[in-house]
Each structure stands twice: as structure tokens, then as C-alpha cells.
């Protein structure tokens, strides 16, 4: 299938996205960070009850938590980004790429019609998706194409 066709007609739900990692907003910063480390999450979605209310990423950890005093027992909602860019899960791929690209964000949280988080789409997933549409070119290319001899003996 043509990449343009896929961008225009497939939704993020069609290509698959990561299930969300979530914590409640009153969870402490310390335990949230411990969980991110343990499970190797680059970002975690913050819930208020069942509803999505914010996001906390590696970058937020570096810039808002690391080296600051007395933050460990504070709730994660103190350092999360509230009201980040979000999208519904049946958004088209080109719309999702648009949001990632235009807003310069690395993760796009996806929510359902009840405002519950259903997953995230990352720049990494987006780039993999684009790469998968050029399988021959992308995966079969040697680092220096000119080193492939044009003739069998290289002459």
C-alpha cells in the first residue's frame, strides 16, 4: 500500500500504539519515578479517577525534579504537564504526525470518548511506521552504496 494512502486513510488504532502506563495524580513523585525506572517508561500518563489529567516524561524528570529538594513525597501532579496536546484514538495517522511534528512533542496521549487514556503514540513509533513503508530502501541499503560492485568481478 502506498504511504500517502495509509497516512490519509489509516487511523492510529489501525497501526497499533503502546498501551498507556498510568498513575493516579496523588501518587508520590518518588514512587512514580521508581516505577518509570523499573518498567523503563519514557513517559507516564496521570489519572484523576479514570480520566486523563496530565503527562510526566523523562524530560520533566530532568528539568523539574532532579536536584530539587524535598520533592520526593509531593504528588506527581505538582510536576506533571497538565493539559498537554492529546488526541482521540481514531485520529488519522497524518493528523497524529502533524501534532507530533508541529508541537515538537515526543509523546501524544490518546484518549477515548470518556476522556480515559487508551495509549500513546511516540515519535519513535511514527518514524518506525514511516520506515516500514520503505522496507526495501530502508532495510537493504548498505552504508556505502558505491561499494557494491556494478559487475560481478567488480571491474
Amino acid at each position: 500500500m502506498d504511504l500517502r494512502f495509509a497516512l490519509e486513510n489509516e487511523t492510529v488504532a489501525d497501526v497499533g500504539y503502546q498501551p498507556p502506563a498510568t498513575v493516579q495524580k496523588d501518587e508520590t513523585i518518588q514512587s512514580t519515578v521508581a516505577r518509570m525506572r523499573r518498567e523503563k517508561y519514557g513517559c507516564i500518563l496521570i489519572l484523576e479517577g479514570e480520566k486523563f489529567c496530565g503527562i510526566f516524561t523523562e524530560r520533566d524528570f530532568l528539568n523539574r525534579v532532579l536536584g530539587k529538594e524535598n520533592l520526593n513525597d509531593r504528588p506527581i501532579s505538582d510536576v506533571m504537564t497538565s493539559k498537554p496536546t492529546i488526541a482521540i484514538e481514531d485520529i488519522y495517522i497524518h493528523e497524529a504526525l502533524n501534532l507530533l511534528h508541529k508541537n515538537g512533542i515526543r509523546h501524544l496521549p490518546l484518549i477515548d470518548d470518556q476522556h480515559r487514556p487508551v495509549g500513546t503514540i511516540s515519535v519513535k513509533r511514527a518514524v518506525n511506521f514511516l520506515a516500514d513503508y520503505h522496507p526495501t530502501t530502508v532495510y537493504n541499503l548498505p552504508p556505502e552504496p558505491e561499494t557494491i560492485p556494478a559487475a560481478r568481478d567488480g571491474g
Binding site: 504511504l3 497516512l7 497524518h94 504526525l97 511534528h101 515538537g104 518514524v127 514511516l130
Partner: peptide, 15 residues
Amino acid sequence: LSFLSEWYPDLIKSK
């Protein structure tokens, strides 16, 4: 992502 999106300017707008 930016390089690839340049090929679909009508679909993926630049920053």
C-alpha cells in the same frame, strides 16, 4: 520525521 514529512506537505505541516 521532519525530513519525511517534507514529502507530504499537504498532510503534515511544518512547524
